[in-house]
């Protein structure tokens, strides 16, 4: 298992209610897992726990069987906003994780070159983030996430701020990247269609707080995929079902 939550309970100190109680779930190595649920239900909190920004009150989170407190650089986090540093060039932004890991200069330069080529951004190394479009900024942010060297990538609604066409383009791009890299991706979204198109498995936060399990749905589609797969009757059915479910929760 790439990632396992074992009996995890968590409550924000300022809240009167628990976010999750005795939560169990796991993610297989190399899979593409989306976590879906209405806003404010604790999706991002899951990432904060995995990242170690928050500590669970009880239970344990392990990556490849090792508790995360004993690990370093086990997850690459890509936030909703690209959070590129405006005073750094693309190159300097991308190299930030390696810089913090005290990598030497030659290694940094080589890795940077390679990753820029991989994400299709050669030639913009010396540009500043303010000179780039929204889609390009997200790609740079993704490249930065890749250079953490982690096998598991945590993507928190990375495309939600983009316009419709850029979003579709980026989804296809991400799928392509994932197929080539063989990394494990955890992807938070509230967009049902996005989750269906991208993931091998969708986890639905099925109950309002506190929740203790995630409802698992395996998507019956093979890779590589294209958008027309979303037109298949069983996918349309699945989509309707998910929307109904999330809607009910939102009302409750």
């Amino acid at each position: 298992m790439m990632l396992e939550f074992q009996d995890v309970s968590f409550r924000y100190p300022s809240d009167s209610y628990s976010m999750m109680e005795h939560l169990h779930f796991s993610v297989e190595e190399g899979s593409f897992v989306s976590i879906i649920g209405p806003s404010g239900c604790g999706k991002s909190t899951l990432f904060r726990l995995i990242n170690g920004l928050e500590q669970p009150q009880s239970g344990q989170i392990t990556v490849k069987g090792v508790p995360i407190s004993k690990l370093k650089s086990y997850a690459g986090f890509m936030p909703q906003k690209d959070l590129l540093f405006p005073w750094r060039t693309v190159e300097e932004n991308i190299c930030l994780p390696m810089e913090l890991q005290k990598a030497d200069r030659a290694a940094k330069e080589e890795a940077c070159k390679k990753v820029l080529q991989q994400v299709g951004l050669t030639g913009i190394e010396k540009k500043y983030p303010s000179e780039l479009s929204g889609g390009m900024r997200q790609r740079v942010s993704f490249a930065r996430t890749l250079l953490t060297g982690a096998d598991m990538l945590l993507l928190d609604e990375p495309f939600s701020a983009l316009d419709f066409f850029t979003r579709i383009e980026m989804q296809e791009w991400l799928l392509h990247q994932w197929e080539q890299m063989k990394k494990t991706i955890l992807f938070i979204t509230h967009d049902v269609e996005e989750a269906l198109f991208l993931s091998k498995t969708v986890y639905v936060i099925s109950k309002p707080c506190p929740f203790s399990s995630l409802e698992r749905i395996d998507i019956p589609l093979a890779y590589p995929r294209d958008r027309s797969a979303l037109e298949q009757p069983e996918i349309i059915h699945l989509k309707e079902e998910l929307i109904q479910k999330l809607r009910k929760e939102a009302v409750e």
Binding site: N51, G52, L53, K72, S73, A75, F77, P79, K81, L83, F85, W87, L96, P97, E99, L100, Q101, T148
Partner: peptide, 24 residues
């Protein structure tokens, strides 16, 4: 705050955060 947290997830120390984020 988000940038500070991003640096934390990348394993930054307190002085990293000061030098690479707060000063700029």
């Amino acid at each position: 705050r988000e940038m500070e947290e991003l640096l934390l997830t990348l394993g930054a120390s307190k002085s990293d955060i000061f030098l690479k984020l707060k000063i700029p």
